[in-house]
Simulated scan of single mutants.
Amino acid sequence: MSDDALTKKDFQRLSHFRYQLRCFLRQSDDICREYHLTPLQYQLLLHLLGFEGREWATMSELAERLQAKHHGTVMLVDRCEQLGLVERRPSRDDRRRIEVHLLPRGAELSRRIAELHQPELRHLQEEFRLPGWPDLP
């Protein structure tokens, strides 16, 4: 057995973290469904709203953020576009590149759902006292 062997406490910590994460995700899924969105649709909207420096992203950027395959991301954007949540626009800088932009309806849904996540985020922040995370109101 190496000196780096995991201890019972390591397994307990990991188990507790995974449990808390799963609770957050289950609650998030329930909130999304109350607004008639799938969890992935909400995540797409959230990433557009939360993208640093802008409120749009390319398909590749969204696929990375979602940890999804490119073609799956395209299908997700298609569905969100049909729901009037996002729209594709050609880039001003490179007409070959397509940007995915959040529409007002998508932004409003994102904000409502994100607001409902705040109590659970505060709970996680207190539970794990994560360094570098700003204090939530």
Rank of each mutant, 00 (worst) to 15 (best):
E61Q: 12
L85N: 00
V74Q: 10
G50D: 12
E61I: 05
C80G: 02
E61Y: 02
L62R: 00
G50A: 11
L44C: 04
L46G: 10
L44N: 03
E52Y: 15
T73D: 14
A63C: 05
W56H: 08
M59F: 15
C80V: 03
T58H: 08
Q43K: 11
A63M: 00
Q43W: 06
G84E: 00
M75A: 14
A68N: 09
A68E: 13
H36W: 07
H71E: 12
W56P: 09
Q67L: 03
W56G: 07
H71N: 11
E61L: 00
L44E: 06
M75C: 06
V86Q: 00
E34R: 15
H70G: 06
L85S: 02
V86N: 04
K69G: 12
A57K: 05
L49H: 15
H36C: 09
E34Q: 12
G84P: 08
E61F: 04
L45E: 02
L76A: 01
L46P: 10
H36Y: 04
L37M: 09
L44I: 01
G72A: 15
M75E: 08
L76G: 03
Q82H: 09
K69Y: 10
S60F: 05
F51K: 15
H70I: 10
G53D: 11
R54W: 11
K69S: 07
L76K: 04
V86P: 00
C80M: 07
E61N: 05
Q41D: 03
E64H: 02
L85G: 03
E64A: 01
L40W: 04
E55M: 14
R65I: 01
E52A: 13
R79G: 04
R65N: 03
M59Q: 09
L46Q: 09
Y42V: 03
Q41F: 03
E55L: 06
K69C: 02
Q67A: 07
L37V: 05
R79S: 05
G53T: 05
L37K: 06
M59G: 11
A63L: 00
Y42Q: 02
L49G: 15
L45S: 01
L62M: 06
L76N: 04
T38S: 15
M75W: 04
A63Q: 03
R54D: 12
F51Q: 15
L85Q: 03
Q43A: 09
Y42C: 02
S60T: 07
E64P: 00
E64N: 08
L49D: 15
E52R: 14
S60K: 14
V86T: 05
E52C: 14
L62P: 00
F51I: 06
W56M: 07
L40Y: 13
R79N: 06
F51L: 12
W56L: 08
G84R: 04
L40V: 03
M75D: 13
L83Q: 10
S60V: 08
A63I: 00
G53S: 13
A68S: 08
W56I: 06
L76E: 02
R79W: 04
G53Q: 14
H47L: 10
Y35K: 13
D78V: 01
V77E: 02
L66T: 02
L45I: 00
Q41C: 01
L66D: 07
G50L: 13
L85W: 00
T73R: 10
